[in-house]
Design a protein around this nucleic acid. Structure first.
Length: 633
RNA sequence: GGGGUGGUAGUUAAGUCGGUUAUAACGCCGGCCUGUCACGCCGGAGGCCGCGGGUUCGAGUCCCGUCCACCCCGCCA
């Protein structure tokens, strides 16, 4: 029977001991963080998930453990029995006088544990990098040794936060009458939306399951089944390209409610987010977000306004640098003397482009004079936007008298158009105007990214994370139900095909699909979409018309969504819901740099796991059993 | 699929106009040290310069290709 662990049980954690424990005998287990060897006297800092405690090995107290301490190295796993002692005053050889031996930088810095007995549970190879918070080791190496990276207190805090968040969410939702219900992960493939990962079926050669991209259809079936309020903290899978805030598998706090409208969903989500921020992050959002006149908490912005002012549907409201849409001015001034814009104005004049559904637009942004961007810097911005499909970055420096200099437009622009642009954008002397024109989506993408890029560059927002408690929540509401696919020249569902259109939009379903708005909503925080959902379409008649607008035949609809269409015919309650991105919530709350910092075992941007080397090849025998053949590409 | 950034001891970086022995810090190993706390001091080991090809008398450095990681576009809520 082993002395430590079996007989000597851990009495305290390494973050626990204080002066009040002076004189107690304790048993600590942990990892060697640092060792400081004076020959005669040896110190180690012992680390467990709670903190660090200094252990001193004194030959006059116990010669055996003092000798053992000579062998200790970083990350060895050890147990210590010893006595807590106030560090008191000690003679400092460096300073030549008596000084306090307390370490104010350490929570346990008032005390130390004098070892009476020690054991090495396990030695450790020299780790490939040091286990400390301010590591500069690159992420590739840290992901390869993720289990070591996860030892760093910084990451330990993130995953404790995740754990508390799970608990707080479950408690809140349970108290609000939501039932935690499970949904399948192996599901039927349904086309549209995100790509699914496919799983070959051994029992049905040549057939495949899909990994659920979300529990969407099943949570609706729970509503039809009469459970009224559902939630689940659930993994979802999407086989799409990755980004800073996207992993191929990720976690959602998924919710669905019956007999509710949009306001009801908003209130439930606001309540949840208030709870999480209060209980997990210690922030009272009530100070910034009192109850508003509509009964909700967070401000709301129409999708159209968000696109117009910020160029995307997830605006970061922490700073300005808003966009101005100049399309109307350009048309009114017939290009304003600028050859590049004349063509666009003419297209509108001929009716090829329409204001309701513009294929091409012109936008501008004012960079304040205080930014003092140099020519070299704006040239770099031009390279940056070209990477996003832009042809260039036209700009104009506004002089005190309102004229433009340093601009390809300066020579030909009409004074009237110039003044109109200055007025519309609010540009003043010294400011720099930045223009984008061309395909709508490209202009929005470029301008939205430029805004964020400049916001960071000018220090209006930090490179990542949040300064102080600057949490800016927003509901983005009323987006169009359909998007126009330019390549295939047809309408496609902007979200999924079961989103409820606005009642006053329904008449446009057949005539002008682009004008149909819907009860879809995203909750946005500091430029991240942290959740999205919709009120679902439960009226079979309108559902049929939506499918028709999408060019989906009844037959096709039956093949794709038959089970849900059937279910909707058997008495579906009005219902709606939302899914919150758990990883993104933690990313923001923890002030992390990337989603990989808040996922325990994340994939790289190419979807590989550097630690396990997934995905990998499998044997021909396995493939044969699945009746799958790999084709060389 | 496209654009950009990076890859040099275990780790992080420097490496000039192509030039002969590729530097530094931390870490590691050995030694000394009874009050340190990122201890200190002395000594030492450690390199496929991502990989492949080319140019050259000579390549970490120039050229071509390729792999890996990251950021972005497309894609994706």
């Amino acid at each position: 029977m082993a002395r430590f662990i079996d007989e000597l049980k851990r009495t305290h954690s390494c973050g626990q001991l204080r002066a009040e424990h002076n004189g107690q005998e304790v048993v600590l287990f942990g990892w060697v963080q640092y060792y400081r060897d004076f020959g005669g006297l040896r110190f180690i800092d012992l680390r467990d998930r709670d903190g660090l405690t200094q252990v001193v090995f004194d030959p006059d107290v116990d010669a055996a453990s003092h000798a053992l301490a000579d062998t200790l190295r970083s990350e060895w796993v050890v147990g210590v029995r010893g006595v807590v002692r106030d560090r008191g005053q000690q003679f400092s050889r460096k300073k030549g006088e008596m000084v306090s031996a307390h370490n104010p930088d350490l929570a346990t810095g008032a005390i130390e544990v004098v070892a009476r007995e020690a054991v090495v549970f396990n030695r450790a190879e020299t780790p490939p990098f040091e286990i400390e918070d301010d590591t500069d080791t690159n992420e590739e190496k840290r992901l390869q040794f993720r289990y070591l990276d996860l030892r760093r207190p910084k990451l330990q805090r993130v995953f404790r936060m995740r754990s508390r968040m799970n608990l707080a969410a479950r408690r809140y939702l349970s108290e609000e009458g939501f039932l935690e219900l499970e949904t399948p992960i192996l599901v039927k493939y349904t086309p549209g939306g995100a790509r699914n990962f496919l799983v070959p079926s051994r029992l049905h050669a040549g057939k495949f399951y899909a990994l659920a991209e979300s529990p969407q259809l099943f949570k609706q079936l729970y509503m039809i089944a009469g459970f009224e309020r559902y939630y689940q903290i659930v993994k979802c899978f999407r086989d799409e390209d990755l980004r800073l805030d996207r992993q191929p598998e990720f976690t959602q706090i998924d919710m669905e409610m019956s007999f509710v409208n949009q306001d009801d969903v908003f209130r439930a989500v606001e309540g949840l987010l208030f709870t999480l921020w209060r209980e997990v992050f210690g922030v009272d959002l009530g100070e910034r977000y009192p109850v508003l006149s509509h009964g909700g908490r967070f401000p709301r912005m129409a999708f159209e306004e968000s696109m117009r002012r910020f160029g995307n549907d997830k605006p970061d409201l922490r700073f300005g640098l808003e966009h101005t849409d100049l399309t109307g001015l350009v048309v009114a001034h017939e290009g304003g003397g600028i050859a590049l814009l004349k063509d666009l104005a003419d297209a509108y004049a001929r009716g090829e482009d329409r204001r309701e559904l513009p294929r091409r637009i012109v936008k501008a942004m004012v960079v304040p004079a205080s930014a003092a961007l140099s020519r070299a810097e704006t040239d770099k911005l031009e390279d940056y936007v070209k990477g996003m499909g832009s042809k260039g970055l036209a700009r104009a420096r506004v002089a005190e008298d309102g004229t433009w200099t340093q601009s390809p437009f300066a020579r030909t622009v009409t004074p009237a158009f110039r003044e109109a642009v200055n007025a519309a954008t609010g540009a003043r002397g010294g400011d720099l105007l930045i223009f984008q024109f061309g395909a709508t989506a490209m202009v929005h993408t470029v301008m939205a990214n430029l805004r964020l890029h400049l916001g960071r560059k000018l220090g209006l927002i930090p490179e990542y994370g949040t300064r102080g408690d600057d949490w800016r929540f927003l509901w983005v509401v009323d987006p169009p139900l359909f998007e126009h696919d330019e390549k295939e020249n047809r309408w496609v569902a902007a979200h999924h095909a079961f989103t409820r259109p606005h009642d006053d939009s329904v008449p446009f379903l057949e005539t002008e699909p682009g004008r149909v708005l819907c009860h879809r909503y995203d909750v946005v925080l500091n430029g991240f979409e942290i959740g999205g959902g919709s009120i679902r379409l439960h009226d079979p008649e309108v559902q049929t018309r939506v499918f028709r607008a999408l060019g989906i035949s009844d037959e096709e609809a039956r093949v794709k969504f038959g089970f849900l269409l059937d279910a909707l015919r058997y008495g579906a309650p009005p219902h709606g819901g939302i899914a919150l991105g758990m990883d993104r919530l933690v990313l923001l709350a923890a002030g992390a740099e990337s989603i990989r910092d808040v996922v325990a075992f994340p994939k790289t941007q190419k979807g590989t796991d550097l630690m396990t080397d997934a995905p990998n090849h499998v044997s021909p025998e396995q493939l044969a059993e699945l009746r799958v053949r790999v084709v060389e590409g």
